[in-house]
Write a protein that binds this DNA or RNA. Structure first.
Ligand SMILES: NC(=O)c1ccc[n+]([C@@H]2O[C@H](COP(=O)([O-])OP(=O)(O)OC[C@H]3O[C@@H](n4cnc5c(N)ncnc54)[C@H](O)[C@@H]3O)[C@@H](O)[C@H]2O)c1
Ligand SMILES: NC(=O)c1ccc[n+]([C@@H]2O[C@H](COP(=O)([O-])OP(=O)(O)OC[C@H]3O[C@@H](n4cnc5c(N)ncnc54)[C@H](O)[C@@H]3O)[C@@H](O)[C@H]2O)c1
Lengths: 233, 233
DNA sequence: TCGATTTTGTGAACGCCTTCACCAACTCGT
DNA sequence: ACGAGTTGGTGAAGGCGTTCACAAAATCGA
């Protein structure tokens, strides 16, 4: 077998075909957050330094990111807050809310379902589904839990394209398959397993326990005083 | 003012001084997860391809990562599951549990406090604190909510070095300052604001709404059929 | 009008991370 | 003992992202 140049589809989100760099995309929500706050504080304009300050990104990086939007600030002045907000919102697809289905109404799922912070940031949970018949009908936030059996109908009829998976890890892959089968093309996975999805479907993973483990690594390297006796081998 | 060579302390976690590459550190928890599962399925050894499969990382990347541990697998055979598990656990500081304080016992906080998945992955929540006097004393998981006023005592006496911030964004910076003042040197921040912390303190940010926004960006670029009329301007 | 000051935009350099490509080392069947 | 098949280790190459450094463009005061 000869080695052919294989196309390198990687993490599901290519930045190549005319889009923004992935790293930039990941920061746009931060800028949006900061701009919203600045706006509420009455600022009409803001500098890259201010944005840097309130997002934790370096100012050079802010400017580079914004330059990718073709967004022109004004030298000596900064960026027009409203204009920049609109421009980022447009780039990020936030001119309209995206309908999201939440799968798994457990401890984490109900917290998410009740969270009011999504709507102001471009997403709206339009359905909460669970496999447990005993929970179907129960109210979470302002939605009633629906049966997973109705998943396909829900997704089609409510124009859902993004899903949040908050089921036990064991069920996550099955749920993901169902979601993809029903037409979902973006998944936010909170279960601690890697999902296998077909090309064209994006998955983002949030793993709180893993984040703690990463912190623990650095903590260990600091030679933490409280653990010195244990750690200093 | 002349421009001097400024020291470039960046995201709080430098990978330079003899430690593992940051990207590798972020993946070690995934390998650990996968190895634990393989172990429970009875596998004694595993190949880099298997690990790649179950983590979503490329096999070349797996090998490169593991080579940084000095971890020697056996060519033609693979890695010894138990041995590798132990080696990663050691590298990541998971030979012992890390004590964690959770600040903010709201919807999200109580879900986290009740989550049994942390202990098996190296972290143990040893205290839940909240500013609301009405909630102090209430039971969440197997812990009673304590007053934020006792934060310093709690942190000192229970050897806490890692904190989870699950308060409203508005309170997060204040809480972070208190935590740092009390000796915490690692913070997992779930509030949608950038925390300012002194050098030497690590912060990791988890922002579910931002993750959805990133998915929305890609979703928009797919030219989603359901939104075509809206999006195709 | 001009010079001082602020701040953006950006090419270039640098560094980190991933991928490639291949050798070395091991197993297994014969 | 040997050859075919597997799998890890690793230097080299390439890509991506960040930072640097500075020119260009705007404001402002006098
Ligand atoms: N709770 C936390 O704080 C936390 C933290 C980190 C990660 N997680 C992860 O998030 C996920 C959910 O956690 P949780 O604490 O809410 O768990 P949970 O057990 O409280 O809830 C899980 C819910 O999923 C439902 N479910 C099970 N199988 C299903 C299926 N096939 N289809 C639809 N629904 C199904 C269950 O009925 C239950 O309501 C888990 O994977 C967990 O590991 C949770
Ligand atoms: N609930 C979610 O699903 C979700 C999702 C994404 C992000 N978040 C973020 O997580 C954070 C918590 O969310 P939530 O839904 O649990 O909010 P919540 O309002 O339910 O809970 C916040 C808790 O923090 C406590 N608190 C307030 N100020 C405090 C202080 N100074 N010290 C200690 N405790 C204090 C409050 O008493 C309350 O119990 C918020 O920043 C929110 O934006 C939540």
């Amino acid at each position: 077998m000869t080695i052919l140049p294989r196309r390198s589809r990687l993490t599901g989100a290519s930045s190549s075909d005319r889009g923004l760099p992935n790293a930039t995309v990941a920061r746009l929500p931060l800028y949006l957050r900061a701009l919203t706050q600045l706006r509420s504080q009455g600022s009409q304009t803001c500098s890259s330094d201010q944005l840097a300050e309130s997002t934790g990104v370096s100012s050079a990086n802010v400017r580079k990111d914004l330059s990718h939007l073709g967004s022109h600030g004004t030298r000596g002045v900064g960026y027009d807050v409203d204009h920049l907000r609109a421009e980022i919102a447009q780039a990020i697809g936030q001119t309209q809310d995206w309908n999201v289905v939440l799968v798994g109404a457990g401890n984490l799922g109900t917290a998410l379902a009740a969270y009011p912070g999504f709507t102001s940031r471009g997403s709206r949970i339009v359905a909460v589904v669970d496999a447990d018949p005993a929970r179907v009908g129960e109210q979470v936030g302002d939605l009633a839990i629906e049966s997973i059996d109705h998943l396909e109908t829900i997704i089609t009829e409510r124009a859902v394209s993004i899903a949040i998976v908050a089921t036990p890890g064991q069920a996550a892959q099955t749920v993901a398959d169902q979601l993809v089968g029903a037409g979902v093309t973006s998944i936010l996975n909170l279960a601690p397993v890697a999902l296998r999805v077909p090309e064209g479907v994006d998955v983002r993973q949030v793993d709180v326990a893993a984040e703690l483990q990463i912190l623990a690594y650095h903590e260990q390297r600091k030679g933490h005083p409280r653990e010195e006796a244990e750690v200093s081998r």
